[in-house]
């Protein structure tokens, strides 16, 4: 039995692991992937101490730090439930069951889906949620980035260097991301920023061929011909496996107290998956 199992190997989970290890608390980290959302960021320019670092490099450093201190890290293992036992908890995964006296849930967030026709059909056929991974497949093509926050701007900036043309489709009247990133997008010579524009449908044959849009100011509809759609409209807490065990709020965030404890004694939460009140966030600026 471990003293502590940490679910999630993003910045919050690995930070918790380092702190636990330094207190000689026997710790296991279980995560579907390494680095969570941070790993997907092409450039992190607001992590103090690093003027520039890629997300992949930064999370690699986090993992090395945790492993050096003797933390056991299991990646590519998915947690689907937690069960209370007499003296702690069992964490149930797709590969086994692990027991611990306490749990820290740092499962972060997963990309929010658009929920429009064509999104499922053309997933991996032109629709992607990872510009950092899949961007180069769209070299010389016309693409759309959907969203107006920092991750959308990050994807748009990456794609201006690769694609022939980038349409930035923003449902709100203005872009919400950081000014430094907005400026980079606005300076690019191959971008069209389309504010107040709603995505109605992703169309295509075998692969994506276009995007049907509506101007929210005029209700006018139009279709853009393009081959790639990068969905970057934010994220939702990864908390499904906690339903019925700990209290979640209306945003599906884990509700925690000032000590980061959830409604269940012995289960704590940290990072992007928990409610902002009392939570030490690890939000990344893209």
């Amino acid at each position: 039995m471990y003293d502590c199992i940490i679910i999630g190997a993003g910045p919050a989970g690995l930070t918790a692991a380092v702190y636990a290890a330094r207190k000689r608390i026997s710790t296991l980290v279980i995560s579907g992937n390494l680095g969570g959302q941070a790993a997907l960021s092409s450039s992190i320019e607001n992590y103090i101490g690093f003027q520039f670092i890629t997300g992949a490099e930064l999370v690699q450093k986090f993992e090395e730090h945790a492993r050096t201190l003797g933390v056991e890290v299991k990646i590519q293992e998915r947690v689907f439930g937690i069960k209370e036992t007499g003296d702690g908890f069992d964490v149930l995964t797709d590969r086994g069951t692990y027991a611990a006296r306490a749990i820290i849930v740092a499962s972060g967030k997963i990309p929010k889906r658009l929920g429009v026709p064509g999104e499922d059909e053309y997933l991996e056929r032109g629709v992607t949620y990872c510009a950092t991974c899949d961007g180069p497949l769209f070299a010389g093509k016309k693409v759309a980035v959907i969203g107006g926050g920092n991750s959308a701007l990050d994807a748009a900036i990456q794609m201006t260097k690769i694609a022939a043309w980038v349409y930035l489709i923003n449902v709100n009247p203005v872009l919400r991301g950081d000014a430094v990133m907005r400026e980079k997008v606005e300076e690019a010579s191959n971008v069209t920023i389309m504010n107040s524009t709603q995505t109605l449908e992703i169309v295509g044959d075998v692969f994506v061929k276009g995007l049907r849009l509506k101007d929210r100011r005029t209700d006018e509809e139009k279709t853009l011909d393009l081959e790639g759609v990068f969905v970057e409209i934010g994220s939702i807490p990864s908390s499904d496996f906690l339903k019925g065990l700990v209290e979640l709020n209306e945003l599906r965030e884990v509700v925690i107290d000032r000590r980061n404890q959830t409604s269940k004694e012995g289960i704590f939460a940290a990072g992007d998956n928990c409610s902002r009140r009392g939570c030490k966030g690890t939000s990344w600026g893209g």
Binding site: N33, L34, G35, A39, L40, S42, T54, G55, A56, V59, Q60, I75, Q76, C130, T132, C133, D134, G135, P136, L137, A139, I162
Partner: peptide, 27 residues
């Protein structure tokens, strides 16, 4: 692709398993 974290994970996995492979950077 060069910046893709899942690519690094896949390559590390194969290396750790002692499996030889050809790395094709599609970019």
């Amino acid at each position: 692709t060069p910046a893709c974290p899942f690519c690094k994970m896949a390559k590390n996995f194969l290396k750790d398993a002692g499996v030889e492979f050809e790395d094709i950077d599609v970019s």
